[in-house]
């Protein structure tokens, strides 16, 4: 078990507690955990997908405004996720699994984020966290079909979630200095995005 695989549940808990900002780090650590044992095509493909699904959505969200207005505090939610992780660990130990199920702990944290958070971006981050966990688990178990299905599910979640966010969330409008505003003619109004 590598240090990267131990760090992943912690980072997944950070996603549950603080939001999508920790997702790129989670993706990079997942990619490192996949590549630490070798560089087979399955591992390389899994690592590439993990990085793309972690960094792409965060870069995409830079164009939109923050939507934390609907979110309640929810300080107990990370502890709920932690409790479920401990339960999973105990169940796996009872079932005879010798290795710490880091990737499934990541999936559990992502599911808690999807179910307990109200903000759409947070739920999106939870689903992408699940994708990272299933990808890592599939790569570690050398199951190409699971890695392929996780990649497909990740693409579906990333693309359709991005489309929904594009249609729901307001865009970031860059502020211009007053001098630039005076220069622009009144008969060519600026576009303010398609927030509605």
């Amino acid at each position: 078990m590598t240090l990267a695989a131990i760090l992943m549940p912690l980072l997944a808990l950070c996603v549950v507690a603080r939001g999508i900002g920790f997702l790129p780090l989670l993706g990079l650590v997942a990619a490192a955990a996949m590549l630490v044992d070798g560089h087979t095509p399955l591992q390389q493909a899994g690592a590439a997908m993990a990085v793309v699904f972690a960094i792409g959505p965060v870069l995409f969200l830079l164009r939109y405004q923050h939507d934390a207005a609907r979110e309640r505090t929810g300080s107990a939610i990370p502890f709920f996720a932690l409790g479920l992780m401990v339960l999973l660990l105990l169940a796996c130990t009872r079932a005879g699994v010798a290795v710490f199920p880091a990737s499934l702990c990541v999936v559990v944290a992502g599911l808690v984020s999807v179910i307990c958070r109200q903000s759409m971006v947070w739920q999106w981050a939870g689903l992408l966290t699940c994708v990272e966990g299933v990808l890592l688990c599939g790569v570690q178990a050398f199951q190409p079909s699971v890695v392929g299905v996780a990649g497909l599910a990740g693409a579906v979640v990333a693309v359709l979630g991005g489309m929904c966010i594009h249609r729901i969330m307001p865009r970031v409008v860059p502020l211009r200095p007053p001098s630039a505003r005076k220069k622009s003619s009144p008969d060519s109004p600026e576009k303010n995005g398609d927030a509605a």
Binding site: C92, A95, G96, V97, P101, S103, L104, V107, G110, L111, V114, I115, M120, Q123, L127, C130, V131, G133, V134, C137, G138, A141, Q143, V146, V149, A150, A153, V156, V157, L160, G161, M163, C164, I168
Partner: peptide, 22 residues
């Protein structure tokens, strides 16, 4: 649409997680 994708994907990930366990 987001609700449909969210619920369907949660079901898929749960079954995949079960398939990856012994």
């Amino acid at each position: 649409g987001w609700g449909l994708i969210r619920n369907g994907s949660v079901g898929t990930f749960l079954v995949l997680s079960g398939l990856l366990l012994p």
